[in-house]
Design a protein around this nucleic acid. Sequence first.
DNA 1: ATGGTTGAGCGTCAA
Length: 269
Amino acid sequence: MTQTIRIATWNINSLRLRLGLLGRLASELEPDVICLQETKVPDELFPLEAPATMGYPHFAYRGMKGYNGVAIFSKLPLVRLEDPPDWCGKGDCRHLAVRLEAPGGGIELHDFYVPAGGDVPDREANVKYGHKLDFVSEATLYFAGRDELKRTVLVGDLNIAPLEHDVWSHKQLLDVVSHTPAETEGLTAWMATRFHDAMRHFVPAEEKLYTWWSYRNKDWKVANRGRRLDHVWVTPDLKPALKGLVVHQEARDWEKGSDHVPVCVDIAV
DNA sequence: ATGGTTGAGCGTCAA
């Protein structure tokens, strides 16, 4: 027995500020599961009543003061997985993993917020860039070491646009953090440990595909200088289960919106 | 090469 469920991922850039927009995402796109990044809310201030109010009785969250933070809202029952490593030993709330109780059996779901990496693409000059590369390397080793990984979905703001057409200008962004060769090679190696790119499953690599447009651009739609920083990956056993993709570009025009837009993938699980 | 904008929460830091 399977059922097609919709999993959304969204860098919300403050959960408390955008609770209304999250409700709008819930009612307009009706995801069964919503994975959030940059919730920017410490656990003691998490709005505990919000998930159920929006129709998500099951949820998990991991936040800290000021920065980072991840959360998962779900219509399906879930169990939080406590095993994954503390990436780079920082305890900085960039990863949450759960097991979803889907009709066809358990689904392992990982919600990641990879470090942005600062401005200068040089390990020596910029420790944030080194942290980003180390985070990706650690994640690669972790998933490479997982035996028998099946029925697993990995989503999140991975802060890297790996393909030429994941950015508005491949040439102009080769030295810009998010699209440097060290980052794109690192992300490709991570994905190659286990995963299939569920977004590019639906959109050919030759077509432009973006999920983020900078706040620093007056008219984001006219300039259209976007990047695909948000991702959905699945293990190969779920490849035949992929049913659809929605990149909700309209959300970039929502009043006081995030600079990232929600991405949904429909999977028969 | 630079500046442009946003959020958390009060200093600037992070993105």
